[in-house]
Design a protein around this nucleic acid. Sequence first.
DNA 1: AATGTAGTCAACCGCAGGCAT
DNA 2: CATGCCTGCGGTTGACTACAT
Length: 266
Amino acid sequence: MEGQLDWGRQEVDGLRKGPWTSQEDKLLVEHVRQHGEGRWNSVSKHTELKRSGKSCRLRWVNYLRPDLKRGKITPQEESIIVQLHALWGNRWSTVARSLPGRTDNEIKNYWRTHFKKGKPSKNIERARARFFKQRREMQSQQQQQQQQPLGQVGKDDENQHGGARTGMIDDVGSPVDDACTARTVAEAGRHHEDLIMHDAMDFMCPMSSCALLLHGAGQGGGAGSCCGSTSEEYGSSEEDGATWGTLWNLEDMVDDVFNGGARTLW
DNA sequence: AATGTAGTCAACCGCAGGCAT
DNA sequence: CATGCCTGCGGTTGACTACAT
């Protein structure tokens, strides 16, 4: 990326635009190391860097952050993206929170290039189909459980955002419906986002719950070895097949998550 | 080898919300 | 309460790269 043409090296109001140089990167990293993240507008005051606060933040968040994961989106991550997009729509930052080391920009770009042009990969189609099938199954299971006498579990959640839950459960429809529902819920108040997310994930699919678990566990290694599917279902390539087969074990995760195994981690 | 096309990615823009004054 | 600033988010752009013709 370095040593690019000077095409973008504009300067407006004394602030540079366009591609960053390694020198600029160093300055920004040094600034963050000393002052921490935030206060982006002060970067140009404290350093030689002639960049807007916006530009600094973007560069840091999307490129310089030490915990960023490099490399291609894995099939696991792809599946999570699909599921979360079905749930949240284009709320990339929300989706990104469940994918440690990935940025909203990265996910957004990935989505646009892979799915926006009406040409979803087989992996994606399968993931989607599986996702909604699982949801239907989980819903019927939950409804059965709800008809039986309820224990203590989940009562507080119900009280806190019962409306959201109801909406989610009632909706067994298309991805669009899911996204709309999620958006409606989210618009009720962003500060409830984590709770809603928790709720939705808890309900939705063990895969996403697992993603969040990974997230919560920090970025130790980042081995996305959570639930998913079998190689027969997902493995459109040999690589995929091996990954899905060895790392993702959906059935176990279903048991863990929905029988309380993973619940304790929330 | 040259050209065209699609895919990828970094960066910018405009807007909205939060917060301090 | 009103205003202005800062931050974060989603959408968009444009250059680079890889692949196909």
